[in-house]
Simulated assay, not measured.
Amino acid sequence: MRLSRRKLLATAAFTPFALKAQASSLGADSRIFEAAVRQIGGVVDIPDIMLRAAESEFTRKFGNAARHAFVAAMDGQTIEMAITRAGDQADTLKEQITFITSFLYTGEVQRDNESKTLYYPWCLAWNATGFTKPPGVCGGPAFGHWEHAPWQ
């Protein structure tokens, strides 16, 4: 095929439409995934970093096909309804929901067969303890106020 200036300009005109179509289809899946994560977490004020990380860590652990299946199962469903309607895949769906729950509340992920707390400062466990913040983000240098011993 010989590429002429006319052919190049003709295909360039369609590029924004193709990119927009691709982005909008990805956006719908991400919005459904995000809604499911909020439902699983049980709170609406989940930090954006945790919402995005939940999706990427889910995909890292289970794969892209599993993410699509999870989105299809959760689309417009409560957790209970999705599990009930999952049939043979109910155990897989429960495992995925358990992973998301654990991730949201601990911020832990597996890397090289080892638990890493990569998202610890943003995890939901800190919402349950209103009297403190994560070490390192609560004022002061280094480890923050956590480096000081409690009053006796």
Rank of each mutant, 00 (worst) to 15 (best):
V71K: 02
G144I: 03
G63F: 02
G87C: 04
E80C: 07
A125S: 13
L118P: 05
A125N: 10
K116P: 03
I32Y: 00
L51Q: 03
L26V: 08
S30C: 07
E55N: 03
T92L: 09
A66D: 04
Q96T: 04
G63R: 02
K94T: 06
F70E: 00
S56V: 11
A18R: 09
I40N: 01
N127H: 15
T106S: 14
D75K: 11
T84W: 09
G76S: 06
E147L: 09
A12S: 09
C138L: 12
L3S: 07
T59A: 04
G63C: 03
A12E: 11
A53M: 04
A21F: 14
M1N: 06
W122I: 07
L19H: 09
K20H: 12
A35E: 06
F131N: 13
K20I: 14
K20Y: 10
A10Y: 12
V109G: 02
A66C: 04
E114S: 15
F99Q: 06
C138V: 09
Q77N: 14
E57M: 09
R5Q: 12
L118V: 10
R6Y: 05
G144K: 02
V44F: 12
A86L: 06
R60I: 04
K116N: 09
A86N: 03
F70S: 00
L19P: 01
E55M: 08
E95P: 04
T132D: 11
T106G: 07
L8A: 13
A125Y: 14
H145S: 14
V137F: 13
E108I: 09
K94Q: 07
E108D: 14
D29E: 14
A18G: 10
F33E: 00
I32L: 03
S115Y: 10
F103Q: 02
R67S: 00
K133G: 14
E95I: 06
E147K: 14
W122D: 09
F131K: 13
G144Y: 02
